[in-house]
Amino acid sequence: MGFLRKLINRARVKSPYVFHFNSGSCNGCDIEIIAALMPRLDLERFGIKLVGSPRHADVMLCTGPVTEQIKPRLQRIYEQMAEPKFVVAIGSCACSGGVFRGSYNVLGGVDQAIPVTAYIPGCPPKPSAITYGAYKLLEVLSEQLGISEDVAAEPVAEEQTESIKEAVEA
């Protein structure tokens, strides 16, 4: 049984299905998410696949400061996802409210409504930053699930993170 558990934990890290939710974003971050799935920084290399239904997804990508109107919908969609589930806040708005912080109709950040696992700042974040964030999330997950050595030992992935780090810093 232990072997099977470990295998399924490994599979969880290796194949996250992502689902994209726009919680009041200006559409800048959404386009950058799509750009991260495009040929140059193809996120499918890590097994990440964009799905349409929250029932199928493991990771929800949230963009935008949560407006009062979208809050109940966001919470409902979060509850519709199957366990284990993770939320990634993409963009300054989703992290803290960004330029809309303090506005009368926004909550200021996805974490005011639902628990968030990872934050990717930037307005909008570069596709390379999104890729780096996704990779970091997978690393943290594999540490949590106790299978970190497998993921960290891959030389190709290391090189890529180096170049992505440089790209983010530049």
């Binding site: 295998l7 399924i8 934990n9 490994r10 599979a11 969880r12 290796k14 194949s15 097994g47 696949k49 493991d58 199957a82 366990e83 284990p84």
Partner: peptide, 11 residues
């Protein structure tokens, strides 16, 4: 295979 196993382990 990993997609299949992951879906087996989900709620």
């Amino acid at each position: 295979l990993m997609d299949f196993l992951k879906l087996l382990g989900k709620e």
